[in-house]
Design a protein around this nucleic acid. Structure first.
Lengths: 209, 209, 209, 209
DNA sequence: CATGAATGAGGATTCATTCAT
DNA sequence: TATGAATGAATCCTCATTCAT
């Protein structure tokens, strides 16, 4: 019964990002999201099951876009190290490019109820899979250490990126997150590599200064 | 005004761990904690300022014990790799040894209000410092790569351990967290090392089977 | 934010008068007022900021009506003694006409918190001013003693009426308050008058028996 | 079972005056009164039935002292006007002489529960009687108007003094209450007098400047 | 499709009083 | 007599959701 498309659907999701980023998860009342989206409170319930559904849909939309664009960008690559480099760069530049979204994804949405967390876990699995596939591919290609458990390696890669991003959001953002792309790459790449030697970060990925 | 010691103080903290682990942060009513601790509701307010103070004190107590025991255990070591190995082992075995506590630390406490989060950040900094000191020490000794930013490396180490632990808590714990000690060590140690070669995990750390 | 008009607004105020008169200020739970008004608890907060605001609004509305009707009724008069006579009559007949309101105004509202008292003081100043204007006018006309301090005289007039009314409310009302209009008038009028002679009470004010 | 004498009994009453005057009726917790009196919480219950009993005893003691000293001071007088003058002077100077007590009697104790108010009414009746006796005596002597109802006159006299005193307490006491003795006397005396002529205030009552 | 006024369940905290010592 | 740690009942307000219009 909930209509999951239309411009109001998108407007509500964008409004939710804005409201949550602005005043935190616990002040994100439905009324405020409705006002920000320019619709009546009740209208939200024409497009979403309930408030939880708004938050989950927000996460699904944003995370889905991210995973899709990452998959697309990596699809043409052959070198596992370059794939890793691009993934890290995408991960950080995406968050740096939308500060509201970064705050919501890294901080606010983690304050949510268990039922929301459960859905979020489900959604994030696609991104997990993407990372794990890169690792498996790297092992198959002989670039990454064959001794590694790809599942454990995925957790380390994701946990590293996530912690770096969270610290950046909480730091009042006095520094550039994307500036950490290279050092993070180097440490992780060395850790993943077969012989402890990782190729340098492919600098053409980075935007020109 | 709040008396911060005594056996009832401890009982209330243990009760809070149990109640929060059992029913989640948002269902952790003061009344339930009081009942679990075997005291009256009002008694909690003789030992704590308010509910928030219970949670922060819980975190301070538990995290403080952990950091202190880690500092103590590492104080006699000379090899940075061995320090890293023991830290990872301690981190995982501690959480595996108290499943309620693990659930509270990894999941529930992260759903709390901004003011609680702020206090938690403050407390966890000591653990951050410990990790960062190990890294700096390793660089000075020539064991860890001198190109690394110790602050970034700290985030990668902590983020990795944290993500592995969180996944374990959420996984219904069908596997042993401490079994991941060695693979996690190997990946991180290789990443940190100067030449991509890390000594094998010192097996005497692990308990005998 | 609080909508301060509409029939529910009035219904809540009337319900508050009834509940407070019936069970006293300290038993006037929001839930009881809501039930009496035939609305949900939360509805009260659509029309009032909080419970305190209900009480202050109650006083403002009722006292405002009283002051306004007094000003209107006195506006056509020229003789200060007649103005005094009508004021006393209005004061007493108004309270006698609404016993619940009398109990709330004379007894219950005086048990309230300092912040409520402060607002009440502000509101009652208009009534104070009305009395003081009558006295100043009487002095200017030569009817009232020019030696008097109008401010002190106002306190004596109001204090007299207030004490008489309070005693009546507390007396289980075995007598008519309006029956005291004439004796109170005579004493006060003589006290205010220039030469100790006050005209008799204008009997046409009183309702026929 | 409550021991109603002893130095701790007095100390508790004085402490109650101080605490209530200092932080208002609603912040006058038993614990604070006990601390101020230098006794344990439980000790209060050796001397008083309950908190209400402390407040009522406070009022009884203080009001009793006042009524007694007034009766004594008026007992030698013959002129009703002089009695009135001395009563007003005593009433005001007593309150002005103890600001804490004034705040408690005029403001704070009136915020109390109905049961306390009931006891207070009972206690104040002696003072009411004193005033009424003066009035009856004045009528008998031919000084005061024989048409007056002594009961109504008493309310006017007490209400006037009470309102003047209350306004003074609430005014942040930027003026002298005893300075109002003469004007209040003049207005009331004229109102009570048989012919509208009252003798001037007997200035020897006032302290020399 | 859209509105927004109305609903009503749910929980942290205070403080007078007790009673074992 | 005196203590003071422990007790536990009692209540205002928020906000996701509904439904008559």
């Amino acid at each position: 019964m909930a209509k999951r498309t239309g411009e109001k659907y998108q407007a509500i999701i964008e409004a939710a990002v804005k409201v949550i980023a602005g005043s935190g998860y616990h002040n994100a009342q439905v009324t405020r999201i409705a006002k920000e989206a320019g619709v009546a409170d009740g209208t939200i319930y024409l497009y979403f099951e309930n408030k939880e559904d708004v938050l989950i849909s927000l996460f699904r939309t944003k995370m889905g876009q991210f995973t899709a664009s990452a998959e697309k960008e990596l699809s043409n690559l052959e070198d596992p190290f370059e794939m890793l480099a691009r993934l890290i760069h995408l991960h950080f530049s995406r968050l740096q490019g939308d500060r509201n979204l970064a705050a919501v994804l890294q901080i606010e949405l983690r304050q949510s109820d268990p039922s929301i967390r459960k859905n979020i876990s489900q959604i994030i699995k696609e991104y997990y899979n993407l990372i794990e596939q890169i690792i498996k591919y790297g092992i198959d290609r002989g670039s990454f250490s064959p001794c590694m458990n790809p599942n454990v390696a995925r957790k380390i890669v994701f946990g590293s990126l996530d912690e770096v991003a969270t610290c950046w959001v909480l730091s009042a953002r006095r520094y550039s997150l994307t500036d950490l792309t290279v050092p993070v790459y180097e440490l992780i790449a060395r850790g993943l590599s077969t012989d402890g030697k990782a190729p340098p970060f492919p600098v053409e990925i980075l935007p020109l200064h």
